[in-house]
Amino acid sequence: MKFSVFTASTPDWTPEEAVTALAGQGWDGVEWRVTDQADAPEPGFWAGNRASIPLTGLEGNIGHIAAITRRAGLEISGIGGYARCDNREDVERMLAATAALEAGQVRVTTPALGTAVWGDQEPSGTPYPVLFEAARRDFEWVADRAAHHGIKALVELHHRTITASASSARRLLEGLDPQHVGVIHDLGNLLIEGQEDYLPAFELLGEYLAHIHVKNAVWVRTEETDASGAAVFRNEWAPLKTGQASVLEYFKALAAFGYDGWVTVEDFSTELPLAERTAGNLEYLRSTAALAGLTAGAGAR
């Protein structure tokens, strides 16, 4: 098992600062966020993130990304892309860039639910079966193109999308080549929607389990009530140690399944300064992996 950090969670650092800091702390790799984003007066996770690589001009940036990562002594655990499966032009660009970077795997996103507000977009109202069937056709094409490039395209388990659970992702990818499509199982996202018992979910995914994202969250009761007078809760990101999910139990399930790939951290809590947060996360993950019987430093799948 190897540990990396997704640069969506390191917004204060430039790419050069990110690899220098992470290598100095002892991380094994970095997962680059690639997207065009809005400007912001202050660095933020989703806008003004200084550690993100713009999609615009990506091809001209590949050599620089590879060079700074290599010089820092880090591996690339994958590419955190935002190209949706039906945007074939951008998906093809992301697949080609991932191959050029020798990163091995890249996230390709699935559609938001028809009932979901997504970014600045209002709910589409499209029924789930229509979204799902279209995405399945798209992923048949994605799998073929990923095979062409010799890499793997990953579906992330993400709340408010058509693949919030392991069951839905397995259904989407069923019958496609697991050498070229796979699933990112995400501990924190599943607290919000899609939670299934860890080990059975890993067993369900089988060869499609390709990558792990770790973050944590909590549900907080607000002062509001709904129209019926019932309590209203909202979810918030939390540090790995204080969120509702047990990282130890998660790692025990990964050990029981025999997972030996990358674990990428994307900690969106803000209680601690960034450098303290990333260093503390690595120390905690290593000690927790040891308690769970996982072998740190094993070769990634």
Results as ranks from 00 to 15, higher is better:
154 L>N: 04
185 H>Q: 03
232 V>G: 06
106 V>L: 07
148 H>N: 10
73 G>P: 02
150 G>Y: 05
8 A>K: 04
53 I>M: 14
252 K>V: 06
265 V>C: 15
156 E>K: 12
188 G>Y: 01
298 A>H: 08
228 S>F: 04
101 L>P: 00
272 L>K: 08
24 G>K: 04
275 A>N: 09
126 T>E: 15
23 A>R: 01
107 R>W: 06
124 S>E: 08
188 G>D: 10
28 D>Y: 03
210 A>H: 11
228 S>Q: 15
158 H>G: 05
85 C>T: 11
222 T>V: 09
301 R>G: 10
267 D>G: 05
291 L>H: 10
290 A>Q: 14
109 T>M: 10
69 T>R: 01
193 E>F: 03
101 L>D: 01
166 A>T: 08
201 A>K: 04
240 L>A: 12
72 A>M: 02
145 R>M: 11
163 T>W: 02
9 S>D: 02
284 Y>H: 15
152 K>L: 09
80 G>D: 15
11 P>I: 06
52 S>N: 04
230 A>T: 09
112 A>D: 00
29 G>V: 00
286 R>H: 05
55 L>R: 15
26 G>V: 03
137 R>V: 07
119 G>M: 06
269 S>T: 05
231 A>H: 13
288 T>G: 11
297 G>W: 12
300 A>L: 01
198 Y>H: 15
221 R>Y: 11
93 R>N: 09
190 L>I: 04
59 E>P: 00
208 Y>N: 03
114 G>I: 00
292 A>C: 14
77 S>M: 08
6 F>N: 15
173 L>N: 05
100 A>Q: 13
84 R>A: 12
199 L>T: 06
282 L>G: 11
47 A>F: 05
170 R>M: 09
80 G>A: 15
161 T>Q: 01
269 S>Y: 10
248 L>V: 02
29 G>H: 00
155 V>T: 12
12 D>N: 14
228 S>T: 12
11 P>N: 10
257 F>R: 09
199 L>Q: 08
5 V>R: 05
141 W>T: 11
256 A>S: 14
136 R>Q: 14
33 R>D: 08
212 I>R: 01
295 T>S: 08
230 A>W: 05
266 E>K: 06
169 A>F: 05
84 R>T: 09
298 A>K: 03
293 G>Q: 08
286 R>W: 03
161 T>P: 00
224 E>M: 08
12 D>C: 01
37 Q>S: 05
40 A>H: 14
97 A>D: 07
230 A>K: 14
63 G>E: 15
121 Q>R: 14
100 A>N: 03
218 V>F: 06
97 A>C: 07
270 T>E: 13
228 S>K: 04
247 V>R: 01
211 H>N: 15
226 D>R: 12
252 K>Q: 15
43 P>D: 02
179 Q>D: 14
164 A>R: 00
144 D>N: 07
265 V>L: 15
172 L>E: 00
223 E>T: 12
184 I>Q: 12
85 C>I: 04
86 D>F: 13
164 A>T: 00
165 S>Y: 13
13 W>I: 06
216 N>T: 03
27 W>L: 09
125 G>F: 06
206 G>Y: 11
238 A>P: 11
222 T>F: 13
55 L>N: 12
40 A>V: 00
263 V>H: 09
174 E>Y: 06
159 H>C: 06
170 R>W: 13
140 E>Q: 14
261 G>P: 07
180 H>Q: 07
289 A>R: 04
11 P>S: 10
62 I>T: 11
1 M>W: 10
286 R>L: 14
216 N>R: 02
148 H>S: 12
